[in-house]
Design a protein around this nucleic acid. Structure first.
Length: 260
DNA sequence: ATGCCGTTTCGTAAACGA
């Protein structure tokens, strides 16, 4: 199966791109972030028409995540455990089964955390601590686990075209990077980095200052695979060309093929 | 550089993003 993640930066503004990409890439599972929509306003019919089941966890104005899958989405849960007071819609999780097995999959939108000298950065780190606790708990499941989404973390200097420009940014702080490493230490494999050691694997280019034209990109959208999922990893692709489409998202899709 | 650009909202300016 092909599992993809894409921060689409507004599902209503990106519906044409979303359907175009679903028809072209035809992932078995698509994890979407920043749908910027309430559940009732998500264009379910347009996606169902393409053969997908839909589960959303939206909110008004910003954030919001979704799971699209050709197979049924089972045991859907919404919200990252660990803080009942957190009302941001940044996590949705489900099980997808095939004839050959099943996968537990999450679509996550990790907080940006800027500026560093604000409560937002503390929220980001606390959210990552909750992510680590839940990711560890998920390892007790029998089925492989895929935690896919916009992590808002630049793991290493080679994950940015100009790393020196990110030293004061929440995405590249030692605390953010340490927690991303801690996820790896639990046993989760960064699928894209595992199959390609080179630079220039960017998944985001800012709308500003000609970042796309100058290839001033960063790699912040990740597919993190539990050991059981990593054992079934076949290949990874970045749909970079979508950044050149009309009215593009500032992120591009990343997908992994798993032998499941 | 409190800038650049894009989406959204109790809109026409401000919040949020990265």
């Amino acid at each position: 199966m092909t599992v993809a993640t894409w921060n689409i930066n507004g599902v209503k503004a990106r519906l044409e791109s979303l359907t175009r990409w679903l028809e072209e890439a035809s992932p078995d599972i698509a994890c979407l972030q920043e749908i910027k929509s309430v559940d009732e306003a998500f264009p379910v019919e347009a996606v169902e028409r393409l053969g997908y089941n839909v589960a959303t966890h939206g909110q008004k104005g910003f954030n919001g995540v979704a799971l699209l899958a050709k197979r049924p989405l089972e045991d859907v849960t919404r919200g990252l455990p660990g803080d009942d007071g957190d009302v941001h819609a940044r996590w949705i999780e489900a099980t997808v089964s095939t004839e050959r097995g099943a996968v537990r999959i999450a679509s996550l939108y990790l907080p940006n955390g800027n500026p560093v000298a604000s409560d937002k950065f503390g929220y980001k780190l606390a959210w990552m601590d909750r992510l680590l606790a839940h990711a560890e708990a998920l390892l007790a499941n029998d089925e492989p686990v895929v935690l896919a989404g916009d992590y808002n973390v630049i793991p290493e200097p080679e994950d940015a075209r100009f790393p020196e420009r990110w030293t004061d940014d929440a995405l590249f702080q030692p605390e953010s990077r340490a927690r991303h490493r801690a996820l790896a230490h639990l046993g989760y494999l960064d699928a894209q980095r595992a199959v390609d050691r080179s630079g220039d694997l960017y998944t985001f280019w800012d709308y500003q200052a000609g970042a796309w034209q100058r290839n001033n990109g960063i790699r912040i959208d990740h597919l993190m695979l539990s050991p059981g999922a990593a054992d079934r990893l076949e290949r990874v692709a970045v749909d970079k060309h979508t950044r050149g489409w009309p009215k593009p998202s500032d992120h591009v899709p990343v997908s992994a093929v798993l032998d499941i």
